[in-house]
Simulated assay, not measured.
Amino acid sequence: MRALLGFLCLLALPVWAEPPEGWAEYPTGKSFDALVKDTRTAVKENGLIVVTQAGPTKAAAARGITIPGNLVIGAFNNDYAVRVLETSVHAMIEAPIRFYVTENTDGTATLSYKTPSFVFAPYAAEGGETLQEIAAELDTKFQAVAESAVK
């Protein structure tokens, strides 16, 4: 019975497998708070703006529930917004594109995101080559943010 209970408890734990298709993932040795701070700084240093931030960790704590650090940081800028809108009004539903900072069980944190080219792929027919070029620019920009944030 104990073995079964232990097994069932393990099933309830979140499992990080390989990242889903279209995701970039950067495990770090940094703490959650340090990686959040460094990600915000890297966003700004790379010409983007933190447009949104949301996560359940603090709200859960206010309810007496402890969960690992978890924050979504939306990044974009007006230049990209205008350019995307010129190609596809529908594609703008995806902006801002989000970074995802998660706390690992060992106290370290991971930075992940869906690549902009993956995010905008469903709108390629509407946005054409220009939208694909913007997405490729953003791929480079998001990679630069991630590499800066995790170093």
Rank of each mutant, 00 (worst) to 15 (best):
G107D: 00
S88W: 03
A59V: 04
G22I: 02
Q53Y: 01
A149Y: 09
N70R: 13
E129W: 11
Q132V: 12
P68D: 12
A61L: 07
V145N: 01
E129V: 14
L85V: 09
Q143T: 09
E94A: 10
T115V: 06
I73F: 02
T110Q: 11
A17C: 06
T39I: 03
T110P: 10
P19S: 11
L4P: 00
D106V: 12
A59I: 03
A61F: 03
L5M: 10
L71P: 01
K37H: 08
V150C: 08
P68V: 08
E133M: 14
E137M: 08
A146F: 04
Q132P: 00
K58Y: 02
A144Q: 10
A42Q: 00
S117W: 05
G55N: 05
R98V: 04
G127N: 04
W16E: 11
L5I: 04
P27V: 01
G47L: 07
A144Y: 00
G22T: 04
V150E: 01
F99C: 10
V82H: 12
V150S: 04
Y100W: 14
T41W: 00
N104C: 05
G55K: 06
A42R: 02
D139A: 09
P19E: 07
R63L: 09
E126Y: 06
H90Y: 12
A61C: 00
E94V: 04
M1C: 12
L13K: 03
L131V: 11
V89L: 15
A54G: 13
N104Q: 15
L11D: 04
C9K: 14
H90T: 13
T102A: 15
V119I: 13
A149K: 04
A95N: 12
G6F: 09
T105D: 15
T66I: 05
D38P: 05
G29S: 13
G64D: 06
K37E: 12
V51W: 01
W23C: 08
K141C: 13
K58L: 05
T41I: 07
K30C: 03
A34Y: 01
L10R: 07
Q53A: 14
D33P: 13
I67N: 09
E103W: 01
A124W: 01
F99K: 11
V50W: 02
L10A: 11
E25I: 02
N70E: 14
G47K: 05
I93V: 13
L4V: 04
S148T: 05
F120R: 10
V51D: 00
S112F: 08
Y123T: 13
G55I: 06
P116R: 07
W23L: 11
G55R: 06
F32Y: 15
A3F: 03
W16Q: 13
E21H: 05
L8S: 08
A144G: 03
G47E: 07
E129G: 10
E133R: 15
Y26K: 11
K114H: 10
L11T: 02
R63Y: 05
L111A: 14
A121N: 03
G127T: 05
G74C: 09
E86N: 15
G64Q: 06
D33N: 14
V119Y: 02
I67S: 10
